[in-house]
Design a binder for these strands. Structure first.
Lengths: 215, 215, 215, 215
DNA sequence: AATGAATGAGCCTTCATTCAT
DNA sequence: GATGAATGAAGGCTCATTCAT
């Protein structure tokens, strides 16, 4: 019996391990598929039950409500995404390393988990306006603060343009995110990972300080 | 009675002028407000009727269905946005002019019509999967083709990096779009227009060819 | 076409007249029958719809909720009961007349409208703990105050025992109410009206001052 | 450890003594509280479990069903009430003693056990229409027959008005019951026991034969 | 053009009860 | 005796849409 590892391709085996959680995993997987196929609002509880061969009572026992199910999936995906990015991030030294870790991590994760990524995009609004909205907000803030602190370290700061701080995340992640959205909705064909290096280089150019003259 | 002009801040007075369309405008305005406050799926016809003080029959007479109402608002916003961008676009000569027109136009419009912009983001998915989906898709393709053709003109081409064409729109618009989304959802404070020049410059740097050495 | 009159045996024809209210009357009648047959909690909306041949939407259009339907029936019955009692009450002069009007009116109404009376008993708790609870409470208080004021008039006061005021309504109405409940639940056979005079006389004896000695 | 005695204020310690029945008592107590706070129909098994910190399986092991729980509480209360009344009843000699025992016993019990009394009122309908309905009916009949037999003894009979027998219980208990209901629902303030003697005297007056002239 | 009463398919959720451990 | 995960029938209610006036 293979132990789920950090490199397991199945996100749920990583985040909800154990034989006990089997039915719970099956429900989450079915919900993800339905939400992506029909949209969150258009998916009915019945759809999910049919697909996961579970009972209504059980679904409500584990998730409390349809919105609770969405939130469970959402944070599950968010955690997995962070985990992947953290790895590269921990080894980054220069400002360019940092940009590469952020953009690369993002691109790699979306390429590896397109279904989860697709879900993340459509679920954000639902979760943000639900009861878990506060938690989501605080997580986002904390992550943003961490980045800013890291990039504010003097040596890194010097390597960057003196542009408004609130603009920085958009300059770094914006192009990659926009391309990933386009890919997920079929508007472009190339898997984001194919453009990994270009997206990193472009992001870097948009925030890097002008190269110092050689003499 | 003041004539609505091109500079009128109210988008609907521009696109649906005349006294006859008064009720129709009121319904559209109410729908926009409801959709932004509660989300499209969560807004009921009743909500819109209450807010616009109109009758069910009337709403169905004008828009046919809830989806029809969404589409009407969507294309109305899309047209207005294009109109603004076209102006700057027409005068652009260099590749940098083009990037500036695209980014600047986008940023200006979102800053001027935040409610419409907010709606555009959430309505895209709904319209895309509705009966008007085909029209939307063809419009998008045509616009993309126009851009590519324009930037492909040799002199402009030389000023750009030789990066994959399917990446180009994301590199140009991605940062601005990402920042605008963040602004509309309250995650950042500064009106996009404040960062107009920085967003243009950053976009330009990310796609511009390396400056040729002077000798 | 017969006009509904004050003596019409059908309570709803009196309280909801007009051809327009036809369907509404039918729904109320069906609800009353179901509530009495199965109990309020055990009656489903579906039961009422089947019986009245109405549509769900319509029922909710008129009454807002199951609880709203119960309240509508409740106040409808309460109004009819008051109307009947008021008539006798208006002509009462002596304290004994007053007691006779209250007890007689109560007994007459229950005997004439047993289904409505049965409903009133089971619905009180539901309405009292619902959103209309406040209105019910204020009505009850006002009626109690009116009685007390009327009986407090000196000449009437002298004809009564000097017993605690808060006890008075129970002494007058208690026996009649208890008998009516027993009749409605089948524990006794005689229609309350048969015992009209005895119930009045007994109530009167329990509150009447001792007769002045003849010499 | 104090032994529960006949004078213990807690009804359950009297009817379900012993350390073994501790959990059962806790469940009954929790159920009583929930039923009175929310109503029987509105109370869920879950509510009772939360309050009693018991498990579903355990509750079903002891009571079989929700209805079984209601019946257990109901008969438990009924037994306690009878016990109290029997004591006074056994010593009664004259017809007035009998009336005093019935009214006084009723008033005393409701005053001492308001929560159980409140429950009794709302549970009657539920139990009557359940599987225990027959038992309840037969108990009621038997008690009524006992009373009638007792009061029918010639000497007592002479002291009473020759009023219809089916009316008698209502005349005696009606006022007290009505007042107790009013007290339990907060419509009047005075504890029933405060009015003990007045309620007895009033009941007696309403059924007593006219005093024979002395000559 | 305008109105709003009426329709009814379908949804989310609750909750008493069972049963394997 | 005790536990609580799992079941699934059934219920109240919403809401887009129609249509007679």
């Amino acid at each position: 019996m293979a132990m789920p590892t950090a490199s397991s391709p199945d996100l749920l085996d990583r985040t909800h391990p154990g034989a006990r959680a089997q039915l719970k995993r099956r429900m989450l997987r079915a919900a993800l598929a339905c939400f992506n196929e029909r949209g969150i609002a258009a998916t009915t509880i019945e759809d999910i039950l049919t697909r996961s061969e579970a009972s209504v009572g059980n679904l409500y026992h584990h998730f409390g409500s349809k919105e609770g199910l969405v939130a469970a999936l959402y944070f599950c995906a968010l955690d997995d995404q962070s985990a992947l990015t953290e790895a590269a991030w921990a080894q980054a030294r220069s400002a360019r390393d940092g940009v590469a870790a952020l953009v690369g991590g993002y691109v790699d994760w979306v390429s590896a988990q397109p279904e989860w990524a697709r879900f993340l995009f459509q679920a954000r609004a639902v979760v943000a306006s639900g009861p878990q909205g506060a938690e989501l907000k605080s997580r986002n803030r904390q992550r943003a603060r961490q980045w800013m602190a890291w990039f504010s370290e003097p040596e890194r700061m010097q390597a960057l343009q003196a542009w408004p701080a609130e603009l920085f995340p958009s300059l770094v992640i914006g192009p990659a995110e926009n391309y990933c959205r386009a890919w997920l909705s079929g508007r472009v064909k190339g898997v984001p990972q194919v453009h990994r290096e270009v997206l990193i280089e472009a992001a870097w150019r948009s925030v890097a300080a002008d190269a110092a003259p050689a003499f």
